[in-house]
């Protein structure tokens, strides 16, 4: 399947990436190259095959319901670009 500039812009929107006007052609071309590569799988007949998500046939281990974390807010918030009153700040969100 091929992709055009509009399709790439839609992906970029979903992935929260900006692609500048001058880069869009090159990006579309390179995404197209990758899709051409992976399109090889379209020929493969996999009707009888179960998908494989994990290389090992293992099951989820369950954690005992215990509180093991302590408050490290100060250490974590030291990493944040913008914090106030213990809150992370982002531009105003409108519901």
């Amino acid at each position: 399947m091929s992709i055009d500039a509009k399709g790439v812009e839609k992906l970029a929107q979903l992935a929260r990436l900006d692609i500048s006007e001058k880069d869009i052609a090159a990006t579309t071309r390179s995404i197209g190259e990758v899709l051409k590569l992976v399109d090889q799988l379209q020929q493969l007949d996999t009707r009888q095959i179960e998908p494989l998500s994990h290389p090992l046939d293992a099951k989820q281990r369950l954690r005992a319901d215990r509180v093991t974390e302590t408050n490290q807010r100060d250490a974590f918030e030291a990493l944040a670009p913008l914090c106030e009153d213990g809150l992370y700040l982002v531009p105003r969100v409108i519901e």
Partner: peptide, 29 residues
Amino acid sequence: NTQSKIFSGSATSFGGDPNVHASAIDLAL
């Protein structure tokens, strides 16, 4: 009403100061 969160060992109690029950996992470090 578990004691800890579904994927981390942070307490599920509320009403405290903001982000005191937000561990490295909850913050997606």
